[in-house]
Amino acid sequence: MHVPDGFLSPQVCLPAYAACAPLWAWAARRHLGRDAVETLPVVGTLTALAFVVQTIAIPVPGGTSTHLVGVTLLALLYHPLLAFACQSLVLLVQALFFGAGGVTVLGVNALAMGLLGPLAGWLAWRGLRPLFPRAALFVAGWLSTQAATLGVAGALALQHRLDPAYFPVPPAATLAAMGLPSLAVAGVVEGLFTTFALALVRKARFRGVEA
């Protein structure tokens, strides 16, 4: 799902960084500051878990593959802004150590996978939880994948419109190539992961996690 370095121009990357900077500062102050010291072990463990699930390739018909994101769990347990900060850290490690994604496109990837996805999942969960508590978790995971996919596809479509030399594939082809695996495979697996992982975390009764 990551956009690699070189696929987006500075016209897209710089505004994304400008949007991310205050959100990173806000998230760090509110959710990773001194007041949050009790939750740091659990948040760190779930961030590491998100890193691991993002390295697991899920085969998709047609020869390609997809992967989970895994940070919607953090949005549901704590706050979407914390999920954004943690996903940004995961993306930074992937870019610096393994060349996955990239530093220039970090802002775009963080906004799509770290903010849009978890925020959509969190909103769906808040809305559906009173009516269908268990289904709300699955829908949150599924919807977060669709929102993240739309965010990445939107950035690539914008780039194609601004300068196709950076990304030559037309938006309709990109949306079809990304959307179908996301709707049918990645979203379903993310929904199941969110449901079961949250049940396990609640059962473990970690410090700082609501039962």
């Binding site: 690699p4 070189g6 696929f7 390609t64 990445v152 030559p168 594939v169 990109t174 079809a176 190539a177």
Partner: peptide, 10 residues
């Protein structure tokens, strides 16, 4: 290398 789904390398 550019794939339709946004994957690729540079």
């Amino acid at each position: 290398v550019v794939e339709e789904d946004g994957h690729g390398l540079d």
